[in-house]
Amino acid sequence: MKETKVDDVRIIDLPKIKDSRGNLSVIENNTIPFDIKRVYYLYDVPSDAYRGGHAHKKLVQFLIPLSGSFDVILKDSIKTKSVTLNKPNKGLLITSGVWRELENFSSGAVCLVLASEVYDEDDYIREYKAFKNYKGL
């Protein structure tokens, strides 16, 4: 397995087509580096709640803040990084093998998630201690 790091996580700018009637952003096959196999979204998340709290062995995700804002806390075996997502034309590419937590959801926030794989419970690492063991700590 390739050792993935927080530094492998990156913001990808989505095309933004401006128009007096409103803006439009599009995601096509060449926008993100994987084929989309699952799409879901988070909404009505209380401001004091958090989502995520896991890592994936194989799955790659692309998170887009369709509305509002939220923070993504990322961890690898060495580094922790926080990213605030608040622009619907900028998404966060999260590689496999990186722990993620989503928190500080603003009122009305909607997080769209594009995933490289269909749901597979065996791909999840849900306990942080198990994640550290997986990373060799």
Rank of each mutant, 00 (worst) to 15 (best):
R10L: 02
I64R: 04
D123N: 02
I94M: 03
N23I: 11
N104F: 02
D120F: 01
V72M: 11
P46K: 13
K79N: 13
I64Q: 04
S69T: 13
I12C: 01
T95F: 07
I12Q: 01
F34H: 07
L74D: 02
A49F: 14
H56V: 06
D13P: 05
N133K: 12
L114T: 08
L63V: 07
L137G: 04
S20E: 15
I12V: 12
I17K: 06
G52F: 09
L114S: 04
M1Q: 06
K37E: 12
S107Q: 07
D123W: 03
Y41Q: 08
V9C: 15
E103H: 14
P33V: 04
K5G: 00
V60Q: 10
Y119E: 14
G53K: 11
G97F: 01
S82P: 09
I64E: 08
V98P: 00
F70I: 04
Y50I: 02
R100M: 13
K90L: 03
L42D: 04
L42S: 04
F70H: 07
Y50H: 14
V60E: 14
T80E: 15
V83L: 06
I64V: 14
D120Y: 11
E28K: 13
H56G: 01
I11A: 04
K132N: 01
D48E: 14
K135L: 05
T95H: 11
N30Q: 13
S25L: 09
S116D: 08
I125E: 00
S116T: 10
K16D: 11
R38H: 11
D13W: 10
T4D: 06
E127L: 11
K16H: 13
D48K: 12
F105T: 04
T31V: 12
D7W: 08
E127F: 11
I64L: 13
D7L: 10
K16C: 09
F131G: 00
K90V: 06
S77P: 02
G68M: 06
E121H: 03
F34A: 01
N23Q: 08
P46E: 15
K129G: 03
R10N: 09
V98E: 00
N23K: 11
K18I: 08
K129V: 02
Q61H: 05
F62W: 07
Y40C: 03
L59E: 15
T80L: 09
V26Y: 07
G91E: 05
S25V: 06
T80G: 03
L114E: 03
L92W: 09
D13K: 15
D122V: 01
I78R: 14
I78E: 12
N29L: 09
T95S: 14
L24Y: 10
L112T: 06
T84L: 12
T31Q: 05
P46A: 13
R10K: 13
D76W: 06
L137F: 12
S69V: 06
I12M: 01
D7C: 10
F62T: 02
K57V: 10
D8G: 00
G97A: 01
V6R: 00
R126P: 00
D120V: 03
K16E: 14
I32W: 05
K5M: 09
K2I: 09
G108S: 09
K90D: 06
R51K: 13
G108I: 06
T84G: 05
T95I: 15
R126L: 08
F70N: 03
V83C: 08
E127S: 10
K58E: 13
D48S: 11
S20P: 15
S82N: 15
